[in-house]
Simulated assay, not measured.
Amino acid sequence: MILTVTLNTALDLTYGVPELVPHASHRVSDISERPGGKGLNVARVLAALGHETVVTGFAGGATGAVLRELLADLSPRDSISAPADVTSGPEPESAPVPGSATASASVPATAPAPTRTTDASAPAPVSAPAPAPAPITDALVTVAGNTRRTIAVVARATGDTTQLNEPGPLVSADEWSALLARYEELLAGADAVALCGSLPPGIHVGAYAELVRSARAAGVPVLLDTGGEPLRRGIAARPDLIKPNADELAQLTGSRDPLRASRDARRRGAHAVVASLGPEGMLALTPDGVWQASPPAKVLGNPTGAGDSAVAGVLSGLVEGLSWPERLRRAVALSAATVLSPTAGDFDRAAYEELLPRVGVEDHTTAA
Rank of each mutant, 00 (worst) to 15 (best):
N165I: 08
L170M: 14
C196Y: 13
A194Y: 00
P169K: 12
V171F: 00
P201F: 00
L186G: 14
W176C: 13
D191E: 13
A188G: 14
E185V: 09
E184M: 06
G202L: 02
E166N: 10
E210T: 13
G189A: 12
D174R: 13
E175W: 01
E166M: 10
D174G: 08
A207I: 08
N165G: 07
A178P: 00
R213L: 10
V205E: 15
A181F: 11
P200Q: 10
A192W: 05
L170G: 11
L195V: 00
L179K: 07
S198I: 04
L211R: 10
V171D: 05
S172N: 01
V193A: 06
E166S: 10
W176P: 04
E210I: 04
S172Q: 05
D174L: 11
Y208V: 06
E210F: 06
G197N: 00
Y183I: 09
L186R: 10
V193W: 06
A190N: 06
E185I: 04
R213Y: 04
S177D: 15
S198W: 09
E185H: 10
R182Q: 13
I203Y: 07
A192P: 01
E175A: 08
D191M: 02
P200K: 06
V193M: 03
P201A: 05
L186K: 15
L211I: 03
R213P: 00
S172C: 00
E166K: 13
A181K: 14
V193T: 05
Y208A: 03
C196A: 12
V212Y: 02
D174S: 15
A178T: 03
E166R: 11
L170K: 12
L170W: 09
G206D: 06
Y183A: 12
A192R: 07
L211Y: 04
V171I: 13
V212A: 01
Y183T: 14
S177F: 02
A190M: 08
E210V: 11
A209K: 01
A181P: 04
A188H: 11
G202T: 05
G197K: 01
L180R: 15
E185M: 14
L170Q: 15
A207L: 12
L180P: 07
G206Q: 05
S198L: 10
A173V: 14
E210R: 14
A178Y: 03
A173I: 07
C196V: 11
L211E: 08
S177I: 02
S172V: 05
L187D: 02
E175V: 05
R182C: 11
Y183S: 10
G197H: 00
I203Q: 12
V212Q: 09
V171T: 09
L187E: 07
A192F: 10
E185A: 13
A181T: 15
S177H: 09
L195D: 03
E210H: 11
C196D: 11
G202K: 04
A178D: 01
A173K: 13
E184D: 15
S198A: 12
P167F: 02
A181L: 14
G189Q: 13
P200E: 06
V205N: 09
H204D: 08
G189C: 08
E166V: 07
P167Q: 02
E185W: 03
R213F: 07
A178F: 05
N165K: 04
A190F: 04
A190Y: 05
V171C: 07
S177R: 15
A173H: 13
H204L: 03
L195M: 03
V171M: 03
L211D: 04
E175Q: 12
D174F: 04
D191F: 03
R182F: 04
G189K: 09
A209M: 01
V212G: 07
E184G: 00
S172T: 11
E184H: 08
